[in-house]
Design a protein around this nucleic acid. Structure first.
Lengths: 264, 264
DNA sequence: CGATTCCTTGAGGCATCTCAAGGCAAGTGG
DNA sequence: CCACTTGCCTTGAGATGCCTCAAGGAATCG
């Protein structure tokens, strides 16, 4: 199993499962699960906010389901934009590269979240996406989604809203990067992960981080050593217990305060 | 004339000019100018990328033209989202407020640029917009734009692309905030302004900044004193001449290098 | 003409970075 | 099965870039 995130695994080897293949009776247990209307993520993902009939219309999207192994790219900066991706399972990071080879992580995506919306602007991806663990995604052809949106103003509105949400999300991150110190940044990050885990039915207080200290650092605008030290500081303050990538928040309110002091 | 950006001017007093009023033969010299198809900004603004017939369809949007005086809010964080705004003239800043009253500037908008796209996500504005000088905007009712987009997949695509562009823009800013030092940040900022001035037919090397040092600092994630010092440093390096808000770039390549070293 | 706002500059402090060393866990090859 | 490598994390010590605090100047306004 490839452990390195930085190694460049060829994306050409990605296994593609089409709906046709699924219908043909592949190893997959339940072909219906690729339909939006029966997806367990429909309240988090693209269909969120749509009524029954519109969700069923989404089923007409001929999208492929694809496995992405840990360390593999889902897409790369500069590649032609064709699909919007919805995470079914696993975690991704998206990042942009700097001239000198360092990366700036722009986000982490979990089940139900969308990837690739930045590609519309110029018709090619403005960032790269890499799986942080073995993952599964739905690849939604943008052209089809567009067509479909033309028939439903509700769907069209949902897409716009999802893009807008991405803009708002980035505002928060700018606020974080622009005006918070190391402890506030890490607290904000952990609280955000905690909320998203909760929304997915996992524990809000105990979870496994899929990203390295360096990736957290890049995302939060600090060095990996500072991330590590801040984790230790939180542990000394009895806000949480941390062992490598395993985190248990023991004082959610305290953590909230470490961050609330400044923001909102 | 109100000089303070921070003072809260009541937006209720904003003067609204409808197309009907214009047609009725107001003081305005050329009523036709409110139409997208004859607007001098159509290559920068909403119609950008649309063909003739679609641009003319945009003329069916019943949008108001509005003056906004220096220091006045165009909209405030939390207000109901109804319009997307296109800047006709003048400069705006958009910002989000922190609990402790400080602001994080999230962007500066010039003629032809759009404001308010972050409001779609939750139906209310996620940021505030304030005029940095007397300005004029087109207030485009989102509901109407939506309807119109349903009749043209090209228009729909253009809107999505504009939102995507905003996401990409914020990626760059995250890169800036996350991994650049003070000189690189200010160089990036000035080069960006320079490009946008050029695209609008102004000099790329000499311009007047509409924002204060504190606002630049907030945007770039540094203190106003550091902004000021970095301006002085650039002047000593003979990259530019600066007198308060007036900037003349004397060595564009040098400035490019101060920034290129790291990025892209 | 005083009040106010904005900008510049200096001096000192501190949060974070840089550099360096060591530990742990997992994978690899003999 | 054990030595060795590799990747990731933690911690320390010292350096530094930016912040904080402070003072003063210039422009604008009432």
């Amino acid at each position: 199993m490839p452990t390195a995130i930085h190694q460049a695994a060829p994306s050409a080897s990605v296994h593609i499962v089409t709906r046709e293949a699924l219908r043909a009776g592949d190893a997959m247990p339940s072909p219906l699960k690729t339909l939006c209307s029966t997806c367990h993520l429909k309240d988090l993902c693209l269909p969120c906010g749509l009524t029954g009939s519109d969700v069923e219309r989404l089923d007409d999207l001929h999208f492929a389901r694809r496995r992405v192994r840990e360390g593999q790219h889902l897409y790369r900066e500069g590649e032609k934009f064709q699909f919007i991706y919805a995470v079914r399972s696993g975690t991704f990071k998206s990042s942009v590269m700097l001239k000198d080879g360092r990366e700036q992580v722009t986000g982490f995506q979990m089940a139900g979240e969308l990837l690739g919306l930045d590609g519309l602007a110029a018709g090619k991806h403005a960032s790269s996406a890499i799986a942080l663990e073995d993952a599964e995604i739905c690849a939604i052809p943008y052209a089809h989604l567009s067509e479909l949106a033309a028939t439903s103003s509700d769907l069209q509105h949902v897409i716009s809203r999802l893009m807008s949400r991405e803009i708002v999300r980035e505002h928060s991150l700018m606020m974080l990067l622009g005006s918070m110190n190391a402890e506030e940044r890490l607290a904000a990050f952990l609280l955000n992960i905690s909320q998203r885990m909760k929304a997915r039915g996992y524990s809000a207080s105990e979870f496994h981080l899929r990203m390295s200290r360096a990736e957290i650092g890049s995302y939060l605008g600090m060095k990996l050593e500072t991330v590590s030290r801040t984790f230790s500081a939180f542990q000394h303050q009895r806000l949480l217990e941390v062992d490598k990538k395993h985190v248990r928040i023991t004082d959610l309110d305290g953590l909230q305060q470490a961050f609330d002091l400044r923001v909102q």
